Amino acid sequence: MENKEPMTEHGYKKLQKEFEALKEERPRVVEEIERAKEHGDLRENAEYHAAKERLAFIDARLTELSDLLARAQVIDPSKLPHTKVGFGSTVKLLDIEEDEEIEYTIVGSTESDPEHGLISYNTPLARQLLGKEEGDEITVKLPKGEIDFEVLEVFYKPIEFRD
């Protein structure tokens, strides 16, 4: 069974844009390889090797993007209820031990940007938060250890993506 990849429309369009740009770049790189072959000895031809590496990267990324786009499940978080933590929810947490508030928004894996509060629904933290509601206290198991959180608020706010 194929796994759907939830993402916002912004995330989907960003992947499409990258896919189209790489499709346009690919023929130019193939031409570079052909031109570099004309310079003779390929063993010491840096241009040839650089172009071959770039082509391998492009082909691998096109395959990856094609798969992601085929499995994409575009979700408009503004249309979802946010009474419990789910895709597109912003959740305000209290780290009970540190008495520190933290805010995260749950997004698709391709849209994740933890430094700006956007975490993938696949992260250990997000997986343990899904379905929780305001007032819930949970002990979250993370790579750095266990942390006790209280869910202070679950709400929707438009996501500010940084490209």
Score class of each variant (00 low, 15 high):
Met1Ile: 05
Met1Ser: 14
Glu2Gly: 09
Glu2Cys: 06
Asn3Ala: 14
Lys4Glu: 15
Glu5Arg: 10
Pro6Ser: 10
Met7Gln: 12
Gly11Leu: 07
Tyr12Ala: 08
Tyr12His: 14
Lys14Thr: 13
Leu15Trp: 05
Lys17Asp: 13
Glu18Gln: 11
Phe19Tyr: 15
Glu20Gln: 12
Leu22Arg: 05
Arg26Ala: 03
Pro27Glu: 09
Arg28Lys: 14
Val30Pro: 09
Glu34Val: 08
Arg35Pro: 07
Arg35His: 12
Ala36Ile: 08
Lys37Cys: 10
Lys37Asp: 13
Gly40Lys: 10
Asp41Thr: 08
Asp41Gln: 11
Leu42Phe: 07
Asn45Met: 03
Glu47Asn: 13
Ala50Gly: 09
Ala50Pro: 01
Lys52Trp: 04
Lys52Asp: 11
Glu53Pro: 02
Leu55Gln: 10
Ala56Lys: 11
Thr63Lys: 15
Ser66Val: 02
Ser66Lys: 14
Asp67Ile: 06
Asp67Trp: 07
Ala72Trp: 05
Ala72Gly: 06
Ile75Ser: 03
Ile75Phe: 04
Asp76Gln: 04
Asp76Cys: 00
Pro77Phe: 01
Pro77Ala: 01
Ser78Pro: 02
Pro81Lys: 12
Pro81Glu: 15
Pro81Cys: 02
His82Leu: 02
Lys84Met: 06
Val85Ser: 01
Ser89Phe: 08
Thr90Gly: 05
Thr90Tyr: 07
Val91Arg: 05
Lys92Ile: 11
Leu94Ile: 13
Leu94His: 07
Glu100Phe: 10
Glu101Thr: 06
Glu103His: 03
Thr105Leu: 06
Val107Gly: 02
Ser109Pro: 09
Ser112Met: 12
Ser112Tyr: 07
Asp113Ala: 13
Asp113Leu: 11
Ser120Tyr: 04
Asn122Ile: 10
Thr123Glu: 06
Leu129Met: 04
Lys132Val: 00
Lys132Phe: 01
Glu133Asn: 07
Glu134Ile: 03
Glu134Gly: 03
Glu134Thr: 10
Gly135Glu: 06
Glu137Ile: 11
Val140Tyr: 07
Val140Ile: 15
Pro143His: 07
Lys144Leu: 12
Lys144Asn: 12
Lys144Ile: 09
Asp148His: 09
Phe149Pro: 00
Val151Asp: 01
Val151Phe: 08
Leu152Tyr: 02
Glu153Trp: 00
Phe155Lys: 15
Phe155Ser: 15
Tyr156Trp: 12
Tyr156Leu: 09
Ile159Ser: 04
Glu160Ile: 07
Arg162Leu: 13
Asp163Ile: 06
